[in-house]
Computed example of a mutant assay.
Amino acid sequence: MNIIEAIRQNNYATVSIVGLAKNAGKTVTLNYLIEEAEKSGIRIGITSTGRDGESTDLVTQTQKPSILVTEGMIVATAKNTLLLSGARTEILETTGINTPMGEVIIVKVRQRGNIQIAGPVSALDMKKISKKLNHYGAQIVFIDGAIDRKAVSSPVITDACIIATGAVLSRDMKKVLEKTAHSVECLTLNKADNEPIYIANKHNKTCIIQNTGEVSIPDIKTSITGGKKINELINENTTHIFIKGALTTSLLKDIEGNKYLRGIKIIIEDGTKIFADINVWNEMRRKGLRVEVLQPVNVVAVTLNPISPTGYFFDSVEFKSEMEKYLHGVKIIDVVAGGDLDG
């Protein structure tokens, strides 16, 4: 079963593609999806939270693969990037949503060719654009998530996500495997029970939930700087801590010494809110920290790019085989070698 078939089987209408680093293979993944959709006769829409499709990476100055769109596809991109694209398109709508590259325009591809995409940055605007792409006939909308914008994979914005990882993360394959496994773990945390979800949604701010029914709300502006005050409110009656916003390394360090921490569940909105160092995260997990979410993220697949633009590469077969040992039950595909999913 390929990725497109897995997406259709689960009725996902919007899917984000999130790269764990620049040149991890997001564009290669997107081109793979476009090709598979064409083979399957499925009309797709695409947009981006940043800019993609340019021939040279604007940050690293390395060569990048172009985005090749096909007839019938629906694309949302900024006016200035559309003028740089080779594909022939028909304008369907001007949205009034502005970006540094101009107004976002909805077009239909009339003749295949290369295209650059640059879409809205805000979550609200992205949801609007996704709905417009669906409205104009896209059965699946793919959102190319710019680097460090994993928030696009939040269930508030998209139904599911695809994670692109690759050799560019490190020359050490083990480090790539560990970082990828950490990212997948964070995004696929278990959903919390109904009662603490109800309490968290009711207060909609960081709070400490006790087994007595009492709810304590720390006097903090954000959870990022409020770790010490949160820690002061944790006691023997605490069952859950709901963190509104980011779960950071500093917050975890502020509460790691609390003697009541083992057995307590931290609840966050979703896995995209985790901004914790992998070593601190793993150490806290070993100490018994349990983290759950209001809404889990559906990870459709992890795509692999065994080639780094700086010249080194992994053995493709070994890379995939080792990744399968780290990611049980997750579909994995090497988008450079191609081929169907095994899982």
Rank of each mutant, 00 (worst) to 15 (best):
E5L: 00
E5N: 00
N10G: 11
A13V: 11
V15N: 13
I17Y: 13
A21H: 06
A21G: 13
N23G: 07
T27M: 10
T27V: 11
L30A: 08
N31E: 11
Y32C: 09
I34V: 14
E38A: 07
K39E: 15
K39H: 12
G45V: 14
G45R: 04
G45I: 13
S48Q: 09
T49E: 06
R51D: 00
R51V: 07
D57I: 03
V59G: 03
T62E: 08
K64G: 01
P65Q: 04
P65M: 10
V69F: 11
T70G: 05
G72I: 06
A76T: 11
K79T: 09
N80I: 00
L82R: 00
L82V: 03
L83C: 01
S85W: 05
S85P: 03
A87C: 12
I91V: 15
L92V: 02
T95L: 11
G96M: 09
T99P: 04
T99A: 06
M101H: 09
I106D: 00
V107H: 05
G113C: 08
N114H: 04
I117H: 04
I117G: 02
A118D: 12
A118Q: 07
S122I: 04
S122P: 12
A123K: 15
K127V: 08
K127W: 09
K128P: 00
I129D: 03
S130R: 01
L133T: 12
N134G: 10
F142L: 13
G145A: 13
A146W: 01
V152N: 08
I157Q: 13
C161G: 12
I162N: 07
A164E: 10
G166A: 06
A167S: 01
S170R: 03
M173G: 04
L177Y: 12
H182I: 10
H182W: 12
S183P: 01
V184A: 10
E185I: 02
E185V: 00
C186G: 06
L187F: 14
T188D: 13
T188S: 15
A192H: 00
A192F: 04
D193G: 06
I199C: 00
I199T: 07
I199P: 00
K202N: 03
H203G: 04
Q210D: 15
G213C: 02
V215D: 07
I220R: 04
T222K: 02
K228M: 02
K228F: 02
E232M: 06
L233C: 05
L233A: 09
I234Q: 09
H240T: 02
L247V: 07
T248Q: 05
L251S: 06
L252G: 07
K253W: 00
Y260V: 02
L261T: 08
T272S: 13
T272D: 10
K273I: 02
A276I: 00
W281Q: 08
E283I: 01
M284S: 10
R286H: 10
V297A: 08
V297H: 01
N305T: 02
I307Y: 15
F313M: 04
F313A: 04
F319T: 00
F319V: 02
E322W: 02
E322T: 05
E324K: 03
Y326K: 09
L327Y: 12
G329D: 14
K331A: 15
I333P: 00
I333D: 03
D334N: 14
V336W: 09
D340N: 15
D342L: 05
